[in-house]
Computed example of a mutant assay.
Amino acid sequence: MTILATVRGRAEAELLRATMALPERVQRALAGRPVVVDGQTLAPETQLMLRLQRVARIPGAETLPVVQGREAITHQAAMTGRTQPIGAVRDLSAGGVPARLYTPRGAAARSPLLVFLHGGGFIYGDLDSHDASCRVLAEAAGVRVLAVDYRLAPEHPFPAAYDDAVAAYRWVVEHAATLGADPDRLAVGGDSAGGNLAAVVAIEAARAGLPLAFQLLVYPATDNYERDTRSFALFGEGFYLTSGFMDLATESYTPDLESRRDPRASPHYADLTDLADALAPAYVATAGFDPLRDEGEAYARRLADAGVTVELKRFPDQIHGFFNIVGVGRRSRAAVDEIAAALRAGLGA
């Protein structure tokens, strides 16, 4: 990176921080007329952030070559996440899968642990893109968090990400003691594509008899085959996550059409019969202005209909990606803090 690019990046980050810290009434004036869709009003700070993105002509990651798109995603995450406090961090290998362990300040010798799988459409994201969010979850929920750096498409299409996620979770079960984790209070979670992987890991854990106390699904992508939903039609353009991004993700991760209906790729098609007693309780969070909203909520209903204990929470003023906005603004961070509280309660931390 050149010195000019570094200076420009810092200037962008400071402008975003300052803008997101403005009083809400000022943000409203700068953002323009309220955006109201499907009976929901977009958060003023989010509306203003999207407006700044359009004015700056920042391209979507899906419009760039894959490598550049990955760099853009990590750069955006750094600007919106900023540096968050944490007790300790160390990188390790979870059965051959790169991972990062976050230990909150004051953690007990044996505490709950969340295996976290990052989002990014199975193409983007890594340990750095979700570093800030994992730190916030660990500290706010009082649990250890093990983030997993699974293989990405298109270099590694389905079932690579699934295989890595399951392998990492099995390793955690076998090595809970060395991680300082309570084997009776293990959770799996993730956002977007990571929510997809968390859901299918939870299903595999139930079938294999692996211990799992909780699943945390943040706007999960649950149907890679058919997205004929109202939210997909309403929010596929103009609200950060685009239909083009999702098309690229689907084509890259599941190039074979038949694989898109495979329950390991689309938990929407999983047979949950007879798994109710084994599936872990779930907390499903969705965003009001998210194309994935309806499929995430439909999956929550499927779990509930199967007899699984489920809490479904929609954050009506948020967009896809709010989980990474923990270092600027107020409303997105408040939503993530609420998710962390649900994780704390679910694991008895």
Rank of each mutant, 00 (worst) to 15 (best):
M1V: 09
M1N: 00
L4T: 09
A5D: 02
G9P: 04
E14K: 09
L16F: 11
L16R: 06
A18K: 02
T19Y: 01
A21G: 14
L22S: 11
P23Q: 10
A29G: 03
A31M: 12
V35I: 14
V35Q: 13
V37P: 02
D38V: 01
P44L: 04
Q53R: 15
Q53A: 13
A56R: 14
E62W: 13
E62A: 14
V67T: 08
A72S: 12
T74E: 09
M79F: 08
M79S: 08
R82N: 07
I86P: 03
I86Y: 03
A88E: 12
R90Q: 13
D91S: 06
L92M: 14
G96R: 06
G96A: 03
A99K: 04
A107R: 03
L114T: 05
L117T: 02
L117Y: 14
L117R: 00
F122L: 13
F122G: 07
I123M: 11
I123Q: 11
D126H: 00
L127F: 01
D128G: 02
S129E: 01
S129I: 01
A132D: 11
R135G: 04
R135S: 07
L137A: 09
A138G: 09
E139H: 11
L146Q: 03
V148H: 13
P154E: 07
P157H: 10
P159K: 07
Y162Q: 11
A167I: 05
A167V: 05
R170M: 06
R170Q: 11
W171P: 06
A176Y: 06
T178I: 04
T178M: 15
A181Q: 06
D184M: 05
R185T: 02
L186C: 06
A187V: 02
A187T: 03
G189N: 05
G189R: 06
S192Y: 08
N196Y: 05
N196D: 09
L197S: 12
A198D: 08
A198Q: 11
A199Q: 01
A199N: 07
V200H: 02
V200R: 12
A202R: 01
I203C: 02
A208Q: 09
P211T: 00
T222Y: 08
Y225W: 12
S231V: 11
S231Q: 08
A233H: 11
F235R: 06
F235A: 03
Y240H: 13
T242L: 11
S243R: 15
G244A: 13
G244V: 14
D247M: 14
Y253H: 15
Y253S: 09
E258G: 15
S259H: 15
S259V: 09
R261S: 10
H268T: 07
D271Y: 07
L272R: 10
D277M: 01
A278W: 09
P281C: 10
D290R: 07
L292S: 04
G296Q: 07
G296M: 07
E297I: 07
A300G: 14
D305F: 10
A306H: 12
G307K: 10
V308L: 11
V308E: 13
E311V: 11
D317R: 03
Q318N: 03
G321P: 09
N324R: 10
G329C: 06
R331P: 00
R331G: 01
A335F: 04
V336D: 05
E338A: 09
A340R: 08
A345I: 05
A349G: 15
A349D: 06
